[in-house]
């Protein structure tokens, strides 16, 4: 019993210690963002590897999610004779929820794990120590540009996801199932609000971008510098990001739409 309590206490202490280290790292990354202005090419390189290389998986998933929404939405709406509202259903679901959330989950799997593995391996192969000894701060040179690139990429990827999803819904609903094309677009136009829906979805994706990239960068930097340590850190990135994104999504949704 005492052992159990001791173990519980030890784990809680470890958890809070890591949480503290994570926040300190986030602060020092944010503190160093100003230094990226004169060397923005570092951020652009990272936007390529974090954002552009994630584009394919985002587009393909967005298309399929939109197609499924079109099909499911149609099947339910047609019972009520309301299939003209398909555009509204597809676009609101994507813009408010699935766009930011699914993008963040895919981002964790594609870009987050790659970031963790890259930084963890740089640590394991002494590249980060090497930089420190060359008087180059690894947080400003390696972590800060990757963080900013992730935060900038996520809302863009989420908007692309939603846009492609709307097209997927159109392909299934209008082209295959025969919903009126004018109704699909005009209902969408009439019901999607710029602040209520688009801006709130955008805020969500920015928050997810910060959280997902922060976790990925921290796990890499904090990884035990061995091959086992790096592989564990990579797994943790995906698991923690997914949980954080889903939990935060509920909180944000409650704050934004819970009136």
């Amino acid at each position: 019993m005492i052992n159990l309590l001791a173990e519980l206490g030890r784990r809680a202490l470890d958890f809070f210690e890591r949480l503290g280290r994570g926040h300190l790292l986030l602060l020092s990354i944010l503190w160093r963002q100003a230094g990226l202005v004169p060397r923005f090419w570092l951020v652009i390189q990272q936007i390529y590897s974090v954002g552009v290389l994630s584009l394919l998986i985002i587009v393909v998933s967005g298309l399929f999610v939109g197609m499924v929404l079109g099909l499911q939405g149609y099947n339910i709406l047609v019972d009520f004779g309301a299939e003209e509202s398909l555009g509204t259903v597809v676009s609101l679901t994507l813009v408010r929820e699935l766009g930011p959330v699914v993008t963040a989950l895919l981002f964790a799997g594609r870009a987050g794990s790659a970031l963790t593995a890259e930084i963890g391996l740089m640590k394991a192969t002494e590249q980060l120590s090497g930089m420190e000894m060359m008087a180059v701060d690894p947080i400003s040179r390696v972590l800060a540009p990757r963080f900013l690139a992730g935060v900038l990429s996520m809302p863009l990827l989420a908007s692309i996801f939603s846009a492609v999803g709307v097209l997927g819904g159109y392909m299934v609903g209008v082209v295959l199932l025969g919903v009126d094309e004018g109704a699909y677009w005009s209902q969408m136009q009439a019901s999607v609000e710029i602040y209520e829906d688009i801006a709130n979805g955008f805020i969500k994706s920015v928050v997810f971008g910060v959280v997902a990239t922060w976790i990925a960068v921290f796990e890499g930097y904090d990884a035990i510098p061995t091959s086992e340590g790096v592989s564990r850190a990579t797994t943790r990135t995906v698991v923690h990001t997914s949980l954080a994104v889903l939990g935060l999504d509920f909180i944000l949704t409650a704050l934004m739409f819970g009136d």
Partner: peptide, 27 residues
Amino acid sequence: LRKRMGMLFQSGALLTDLSVFENVAFP
């Protein structure tokens, strides 16, 4: 001070995404 101290790590610690030229040019 570190700018005036070089260190050679056991593994070399070269930056793996840069060529030999760029590694030497890095500092």
